[in-house]
Design a protein around this nucleic acid. Structure first.
Lengths: 200, 200
DNA sequence: TAATTAGTTGATGTATACATAAATATAAAT
DNA sequence: ATTTATATTTATGTATACATCAACTAATTA
């Protein structure tokens, strides 16, 4: 269970500030300055910064400024892992989980910006979980922040054909077409990558 | 560049103590006790423990006790990532790097326990680096500790046919046979996994 | 006896003070 | 003016004190 410690609060605040570009890319973050801003001591700030270094949002005390290559690297790994995950999904997923995926697709069709984003994220999360591999799940989880940082969410939520691609993946899962599911997932992620790069 | 801070020293000592089973699997590690043993304050111990939690050697303040499933999960991810890496190696590696791999194989043939282990580790490291993907490199790096913890090194260094398998992979790389290299790497890792499980 | 409560111990979270190291600015010298 | 050396500031590393929280023990009561 997640606790409400000053460290966690600091972590979330700093992370969100980075997402909202309150701190610029490449900007040096010092412990005292952050501690002052957040009204806590340096100790929880250090904890938070360590966690942020883990997920790659901070590097050498500076807000990262991901390059195109960084993003490509991230997506290459993601394609491998989610490709595997969707294969497992196509093989083992039960009707109830498939129904959950269906719900995500529906929700993304109806909803507004924020909800669309959430539903699409959930779609991937469910598939990743279906891998039933904690190492894989954790690895993908750690990459999310960098992806999120890179992506301009305002633009991204209306990426063309995204929902159709999810639907196609869902169909492949439903029909237990592993090979097809993997291929669809990989090309889906490839399009995500290209879109992210070009809308940059 | 790595510094000689008390935090780093604490990290290495605790890690090695876990490897040497000075702390039992599942044992609860408290900050004060470790601080006393290492002759430092709690602060660097906390830093060290955080780092160890990152790489999965500690979970919830306890030394992890990896299950067979944990190991299988780790190897499944490793197979995906190193499979990809060796493909890149087969495609792009230059003669000098191939020579380095050759040296690893030679060294493993001649050397003694410790050197054999190092040379074989180095063989994989070179291939992983050839992926030219930092995200992938970091991900594999983080998994090493758990693999090392699980493996009984005394037994492992004499796993049958390990060197021959490395040689076969090297040949595939030399001949730019991507598909073959990937297949060989994956079955090589599969055998590693099986050996680790059965010699348990 | 089982269960609840109070009290005690121990562990972690947080703030702060001090020490060391890094970075920057200032002055001197070529 | 550029470099070298020195001084000053600033940031980080480490120790320690205190506060809070959790775990355990003992005692009281149903």
């Amino acid at each position: 269970m997640k606790q409400y410690t000053a460290s966690n609060a600091a972590y979330e605040k700093i992370r969100d500030a980075i997402f909202e570009e309150k701190y610029e890319r490449g900007e040096k973050l010092t412990e005292v300055k952050l501690a002052d801003e957040l009204g806590v001591s340096r100790t929880p700030v250090r904890d938070a910064m360590r966690k942020l270094e883990e997920e790659g949002l901070i590097k050498d005390k500076r807000v990262i400024n991901p390059t195109i290559k960084d993003l490509m690297n991230t997506f290459d790994v993601r394609m491998l892992l989610e490709g595997y995950a969707v294969r497992q999904a196509a093989r083992y997923m039960g009707p109830d989980q498939i129904e959950d995926l269906q719900q995500c697709v529906e929700a993304a069709k109806r909803g507004k910006t924020e909800e669309i984003m959430d539903a699409n994220k959930e779609f991937h999360d469910i598939i990743v979980k279906a891998s039933n591999n904690d190492v894989l799940i954790d690895t993908i989880d750690r990459m999310q922040s960098v992806i999120f940082l890179f992506r301009r969410t305002v633009v991204y939520h209306q990426r063309p054909r995204l929902i159709e691609e999810h639907e196609a993946i869902l169909e492949a899962i439903r029909n237990h077409e592993e090979e097809q599911a993997e291929w669809l997932m990989k090309s889906h992620l490839k399009k995500d990558l290209d879109f992210s790069i070009h809308s940059w």
